[in-house]
Design a protein around this nucleic acid. Structure first.
Lengths: 348, 348
DNA sequence: GAGCGGAATCTAATCGATTAACTATACGAG
DNA sequence: CTCGTATAGTTAATCGATTAGATTCCGCTC
């Protein structure tokens, strides 16, 4: 592999001149510039990013921390981050944490080692607080996306999950339901807490007491979601929910299956709603009513903010962005049984 | 940030000694070792990976090249690659190419810049041949996964797509279908060609002439798949397929929707089969018959092979692995109409 | 023609690690 | 007592870029 020295020799100039041509940082006479460019061409030279990175102390890489790329929630975010990164000359790398305590250390290490210049963290949980705080105090650029942690001086971009939870429950209440269950997701995640809070607010407003049996964990995944729904449907008739809200479309999908498996019709016997509007939710055989959130937008804004912060350190206030969510009415909530005409209801 | 020099000073040893302790590359007396370790502890020192990378010329990073992480085919592969990489001290980065000509250059650049040590390419198309060949001749470690390119001296891991195509068509033929359509995917991809070849072999064996109308492009995505299926269903009754095989479950899903939209029942009026066994295919509302391929395994083996090649350059033959595929019989092929009892049929 | 200023280019230090080669010391054999 | 050798540690070159500061060169003025 040719190095800058080889180019300098071949072009009969100093390495400094080559560097100036490469980066366009000083005037170089046309003749020498020409010679340098030809040498680069002839030797097929590509500057070594590692050497450059050592000198200027940046890796031109950012890291996306997510819990599991096989959860269909994340690919859109990952996609957005990668596109933004690439468009600005950065590369993206990825860590799956599975929401394990301590996994954030992996990312912290990459930061401290100089392998990456900044972090987009979508997995923030309370136990990550200390690490994130310390990193941010040390000046490492970090953006939290999707999940937030309160009272941390770190830029944050989330969806309006509280509103989502509220809209979900409110919608069912309007349709006449009173026994509405909420299948929760990852314990302690702000997404979970906010959506639940919204649900509880709507229930309280309607004067409905939420039974503890109706709050049940589904981990935002298929199998646990199935078990949660199955458990709800085994409740004695007078407690059994007539509507289930699942924190994730993935879980809601499993609720549909659980219902089918005990010969309940959706939406006649059981109404179901999910969150996120994953791609399968709109297909004819599913038609899941859901709270849509803008995953791509979440990723895009997070990545853009991160790069912004990396390139001008001073003069930026802490960002606290909240993206709107949208209720998408489809088959599984049974709204069509009453009013067949409104497909999309925008509460926000 | 503390450097190795700071540690050396504080521990009153030379930087070399610190390095030997760090890497355990030479005997260091217990007293000095102790002092070094304490200094590391006290200063919270983390060795700079970029400096190390420059010196030993490796980045401890590999790059996964895929066409689009939002296509549910890829996350499992990505996941597998990341896990294998992480378990061996590597990080993974990701490029989405959208199957654009020239996108492979992005990856090649990262290799030549020294940002990554090796490539897992899942997007190989004929137009990438030259670049890949040159890179591999220059000694860069590369593994092709999922898609292959013929006659390239590069390790390759694919599924048995020909067998998959054959099994798919054969299954329908056995069920009595004769007008069987095949909705193709990305033009020129080996996956596409092999699956199609298998289909054609089965058709030929059964003495059925494949009409050109039955071969139609769906790009392995939802919307184009829908259009393709819709077009097939608009064919005059005597040409119209009674069964559709789609190169991807994503496309097959859209075929179900297209059928529903023209009031055709699946599987009674139209049988449908997909490929890949994506996660939604097994849910009660879908129950898509499909050819399962091991995406995680594909990613895992590719990553393991890549790392193997990176760590011992000599003595490795070219690898040409073919992973078996499996026919998963569910609702949409209509097999249950005839024989309700066998869920999984293993042809391979 | 000495002196000055500015433009173009070069020299060399630097980033933070690794590692080959060297030095100092101790010990044992002859 | 000398010599050889093994051991523990150090010095300094190196990886391939960037960049501050020095140098060279040229034209212009007085």
């Amino acid at each position: 592999m040719a190095t800058i020295k080889d180019i300098a020799e071949r072009a009969k100039v100093s390495v400094a001149t080559v560097s100036y041509v490469l980066n366009d940082t000083r005037y170089v006479s046309p003749e020498k510039k020409e010679r340098v460019l030809r040498a680069i061409e002839e030797l097929n030279y590509v500057p070594n990013a590692v050497a450059r990175g050592l000198r200027v102390r940046e890796s031109k890489t950012i890291c996306l921390v997510l819990s599991d790329i096989t959860n269909p929630f994340y690919p859109d975010m990952a996609r957005a981050c990668e596109e933004v990164a690439r468009s600005q000359g950065y590369t993206l790398n990825m860590i799956n944490t599975n929401d394990q305590p301590g996994a954030i250390e992996q990312a912290a290490k990459q930061l401290r080692e100089g392998k990456v210049d900044g972090l987009i963290v979508t997995t923030a949980l309370e136990f990550d607080r200390e690490v994130l705080l310390k990193l941010s105090e040390q000046g490492y650029p970090i953006v939290l996306a999707h999940r937030k942690i309160e009272d941390l001086p770190i830029d944050t971009i989330v969806s309006d999950n509280e509103a989502g939870g509220y809209m979900a429950a409110k919608h069912f209440i309007k349709l006449g339901h009173r026994r509405i269950a909420f299948v929760t997701g990852v314990n302690g995640s702000s997404v979970n807490l906010s959506r639940m809070a919204g649900y509880e607010r709507a229930m309280a407003e309607a004067g409905i007491t939420v039974l503890p049996e109706w709050l049940i964990s589904g981990e935002a995944r298929y199998e646990p979601g199935y078990d949660a729904a199955a458990a709800l449907l085994r409740l004695p008739k007078e407690l059994r929910p007539t509507a289930i809200i699942n924190l994730s479309d993935l879980g809601a999908l499993s609720a549909l299956d659980a219902a089918a498996d005990v010969q309940l019709r959706v939406p006649e016997d059981l109404a179901v709603m999910g969150f996120d509007d994953l791609f399968f939710s709109s297909t004819r055989n599913i038609q899941l009513t859901t709270i849509r959130i803008s995953r791509y937008e979440l990723g895009r804004r997070a990545a853009e903010r991160l790069l912004e912060r990396m390139n001008k350190t001073e003069g930026l206030q802490k960002l606290d962005a909240v993206l709107p969510v949208e209720l998408i009415v489809r088959r599984t909530c049974g709204a069509y049984l009453q009013r067949p005409n409104d497909h999309v209801m925008l509460y926000h």
